[in-house]
């Protein structure tokens, strides 16, 4: 990252980051002073009053009432200052401006999904216009997750069956790391996402084309979804068997029990939408369903599987690019988002 952070903190990339940082540095500085003071006196007394002989007698020390009072009163004042400062910054970080642009976020094991007011969905990549307040309305479909962007100093848990919110305004264009900070299982440490802050024009264009996916050839769409929709967590493409069967050699492989007896387009489509319909022998039925993938997305995955099995040619790409294949929602409709269905 080109942006410069400090020794302690990442770069201040949101408009509210400096408030949190200021309090952080205040507490550090006061703490260092107190720590040095305590250590100094501790070492000084341990040295100055070291035992000369085992016949040393205890010396009467009169209790100093004012000293004791001072070290009750001064720490109490300090903690109240810190509290009020933290309270102010907490309120400012918690209440979004009225004109904030709202984006819905869904955390699920182990990826982040974003849904925009016009229906565009995106996995792993959160595009936002720079310099404008953004409010994220978050929920989860399975267990607790937490949306953390270190450079924005923004964090909140995503809870199943509830909405929680965070807001931020990005100061400059760039890509910012998002991490999950509520333990959620095996791939908790790999549940990454990225905030892409772009200028208004680029953002509008991105939104209009449904996140750029409308223009992607099907097989490339499938390849991108393989990563972002989380298929790679369980399915490899190189023949190595994982939690789920590998896709290498999958196309038209024998699948007794399916409609045509082989793994064809319908088999793959069913397996994505209703995974427990066909469970491959030797594997457990633990694949979650992916109802949010559009028909085009699924066609893309089928295309990708065909490609890695050597059954996808340029002619297929050309045929797929015909408008009849594109079933994405009209990108410029202003339909308001429905509430995220609880899983």
């Amino acid at each position: 990252m080109e942006r410069e952070g400090s020794f302690w903190l990442p770069p201040q990339s949101s408009t509210t980051a400096h408030e949190i940082d200021a309090l952080f540095y205040f507490i550090i500085i006061v703490s260092v002073i107190i720590q040095i003071g305590v250590t100094y006196y501790m070492v000084k007394y341990a040295w100055k009053y070291r035992r000369r002989s085992h016949a040393d007698r205890p010396v009467d020390v009169h209790p100093n009432k004012w000293l004791e009072i001072s070290w009750v009163v001064i720490p109490s004042l300090l903690v109240f200052v810190v509290f009020f400062w933290g309270f102010k910054a907490f309120v400012s970080a918690g209440i979004a401006p009225d004109n904030a642009y709202q984006i819905h976020v869904t955390g699920k094991k182990w990826l982040w999904e974003f849904e925009y007011p016009n229906g565009t969905t995106s996995v792993e990549d959160l595009y936002v216009p720079v310099g404008e307040p953004i409010e994220l309305i978050m929920t989860s479909t399975d267990v607790l997750h937490s949306f953390f962007v270190p450079e924005f100093r923004v964090k909140h848990d995503a809870i199943p069956n509830r909405y929680t919110t965070v807001w931020f305004e990005v100061k400059e264009e760039g890509t910012y790391q998002v991490l999950c900070t509520e333990y959620c299982g095996t791939a908790h440490s790999e549940m990454y996402a990225y905030v892409h802050a772009v200028d208004r024009g680029t953002f509008n264009e991105w939104l209009r084309t449904g996140g750029g996916n409308d223009n992607l050839p099907l097989n490339e769409l499938g390849a991108s979804l393989y990563d972002k929709a989380g298929c790679q967590t369980c399915h490899s493409v190189d023949g190595v068997s994982g939690t789920g069967p590998t896709w290498q050699g999958l196309w038209q492989a024998a699948r007794p029990g399916s409609e045509e007896g082989v793994a064809d387009a319908n088999y793959i489509r069913t397996s994505i939408v209703n995974p427990n319909a066909y469970i491959t022998e030797g594997y457990e039925g633990i694949m979650p369903a992916y109802p949010n993938l559009t028909d085009r997305d699924i066609n893309g995955l089928i295309a990708y599987i065909r490609e890695i099995n050597g059954d996808w040619t340029a002619a297929d790409s050309a045929a797929a690019a015909a408008p009849a294949d594109s079933l994405a929602a009209p990108a410029d409709s202003l339909a308001t988002p429905d509430a995220e269905p609880a899983e």
Binding site: I20, I27, I34, W85, F90, S146, R153, V154, K155
Partner: peptide
């Protein structure tokens, strides 16, 4: 002293679960 740090509301937003 670092307990005071994480007990401060706004700073804890950044530091919680880290």
């Amino acid at each position: 002293l670092t307990g005071i740090m994480v007990g401060a509301l706004a700073v804890d937003i950044h530091l919680h679960d880290t």
